[in-house]
Design a protein around this nucleic acid. Structure first.
Lengths: 355, 355
DNA sequence: CTTGTTTCCGAAAGCGCTTTCGGAATAAGC
DNA sequence: GCTTATTCCGAAAGCGCTTTCGGAAACAAG
């Protein structure tokens, strides 16, 4: 362990040329089996490992992939990035590749950052997350013909690879579920619709409302920020109105946490007086008060899956062949229930007075 | 944008030598101000950016840092890795450096992985997290004289850089708080003590118990896994005993979630019949039932801090000069309260019957 | 035994940058 | 005006590996 082993030293030790040793190690066909074995054994005995930087420069293959973290890290909105990174890292390490993590400061800066990243040669592929409705990053990557995959879908999703959960269908199911419970005034707590996932969930909500013969009431739709506070504010606002909704559908579990808080703060009990359903299926959601009913997305091996798909594309696969849509499932806990029927006594009272 | 700009082309364009252009761009003193300006302007006009791989190979500086993710990603035990990564990434990107993320499969493999990582030249520094009591990784890095910083402390923490929260003191404070509320039988729900943080918290607990003139009862100490389920099992076990504790101290908020569940499952109300205090101060903890009282650690800019310290060490700073200890604060919510005094009626009844 | 094939390895040119060294050109010193 | 210092740039040798090309040696074919 005096000095790091180098190809040159290995070659000298074997009485061979650097080029020959290199080809022997990389299983070139023009090396006899005998010397190949000799070289590989010596390499492992001396603990030789090619310097990745040198190899990458020589081959032009970065042997690394970048994960672009979504912004909004100030909220608890990213409970699964650790899981996703673990999965990604697992796939990559099997190939000996590196996983880079980057994060943009602003949206405009992000395109710039991404451009620098892919032209710098540091990575051979990119995984994007939480795409916008009309995402400049996707356009950029497509134009550059750079391998990438996106976690989620943008509006036009024909031509690139993605992994997503059908949250529109999930919201349809959630609305249907609530309607079946007798709810007719269902509040929607959403996120800015430049996020395509927010748009899709809103679409699902509206579609299902209509299909159930209910009116789409714009007053019942609140767009707010992706945090518990956002959810609390939005739900509170809706609850304080004349015709408060009897149920809430939230775009994320995190917002649903806030909605629960808003309901409790008004002396009502979630799941009894007012229902709320979240989306995500965070492990944590079972601990809320009451335990949150939510549309759980299968996030088990999404990291691995994304990694495998990206590698396949880097290897020359057609991105169009890599589009997988999973579906979410209603995980019923305690925050939903039949619409609260007011008794004759309580009929004329306000919520507050009922406590 | 036909072909990526190279030093060679830039040099040709300027009628200069590659070496000269390189030195001009890197502000070497042996380049006249005039040509330096000329070069730098041309470079920015033509959008030239040095190829990082080539630069790294030539200089021997990896311009990258690795974050070793803690294992246990199956639990929700790592809610802040996203935040930490964001902070780290921010610091690094200001310098144009990369952030690598790796994760080990097994503990033994980790030492190997780490050794390969630091000898491969891919990174200039490493940030470790959640050190074990006697951490082989730290020894390895020290022996190799490789720049690193650890998030948390190991047993011997004189000679290297670390950032940690004084969780021992936090547990002393928590015990004092509970004792002041009249609690004399305080259960401790801990984690395997090969994690040094688990050991330190246990030490704090024991020390405070003794200082308060109470007996350290081994039966009150449960070591379990770092998850909500672990906490629930451990708390349940304790609650079902003859002399159940009147309060729980949990090593993490996540475990505390489980403890709350165990208490509620037995028809008791946390914060009234049985107190529980967690540790971490997760944002999420305000949403439990009831809202969790916890020792909140300042995790605001830990990522940035770790990054800055590591860079300073890489720049030649003495690791011993980079040791910062923050303290946690009691964040009182609703899961703690004075010890439950049984009335004469309930005196002889069991917990279950009281509901 | 010659000619034509294969097999296998050496030589050398990169990959795109950095950095040391030496020397021409210019400025300073007397 | 000549010597001694400075200033500034060119030349060249790496960094540690890969990959193409050509040719000597070994083999097969006639």
């Amino acid at each position: 362990m005096t000095q790091r082993m180098s190809l040159k030293k290995l070659a000298a030790h074997l009485g061979l040329t650097e080029g020959t040793v290199s080809r022997a190690l990389n299983n070139y066909p023009d090396i006899s089996q005998k010397t190949r074995d000799r070289v590989q054994q010596a390499a492992s005995e001396l603990g030789y490992r090619a310097n990745p930087l040198a190899r990458r420069l020589a081959t032009g293959i970065a042997e690394a992939v970048a994960y672009i973290m979504p912004e909004n890290h100030s909220t608890i909105s990213e409970p699964f990035v650790a899981q996703l990174l673990a999965g990604l890292g697992e796939t990559l390490s099997e190939r000996g590749w590196d996983l880079l993590v980057t994060q943009s400061v602003s949206a405009e800066e992000e395109a710039d950052m991404l451009h620098r990243l892919i032209t710098s040669g540091r990575v051979s592929g990119v995984v994007l997350s939480r795409p916008l409705k009309n995402d400049a990053r996707i356009k950029l990557l497509q134009k550059a013909k750079f391998p990438f995959i996106v976690h989620g879908r943008s509006v036009e999703y024909q031509d690139y690879a993605w992994y997503d959960v059908d949250s529109k269908a999930a919201f349809v199911a959630a609305v249907d579920h609530l309607v079946a419970l007798g709810h007719a005034r269902i509040g929607f707590i959403g996120a800015p619709t430049y996020y395509n996932f927010a748009q899709m969930r809103l679409d699902g909500y509206k579609e299902a409302i209509v299909n159930n013969g209910l009116p789409v009431d714009p007053d019942l739709i609140q767009i707010t920020e992706l945090s518990d506070d956002g959810g609390e504010l939005a739900a509170g606002d809706l609850l304080d109105r004349k015709h408060a909704p009897t149920a809430f559908l939230c775009v994320t579990d995190t917002q649903a946490f806030g909605a629960l808080a808003a309901i409790r703060a008004r002396g009502l009990v979630p799941g009894k007086h007012v229902s709320v359903i979240g989306y995500d299926g965070l492990r944590f959601s079972r601990h809320t008060n009451p335990p949150l009913t939510t549309m759980a997305q299968p996030q088990a091996h999404s990291g691995r899956l994304l990694g495998d798909m990206l590698l396949a594309i880097i290897d020359g696969g057609d991105p169009k062949d890599f589009q997988v849509l999973r579906s979410a499932e209603l995980m019923r806990r305690k925050s939903d229930g039949p619409v609260w029927v007011e008794t004759s006594e309580t009929m004329s009272k306000t919520w507050e007075e009922q406590t």
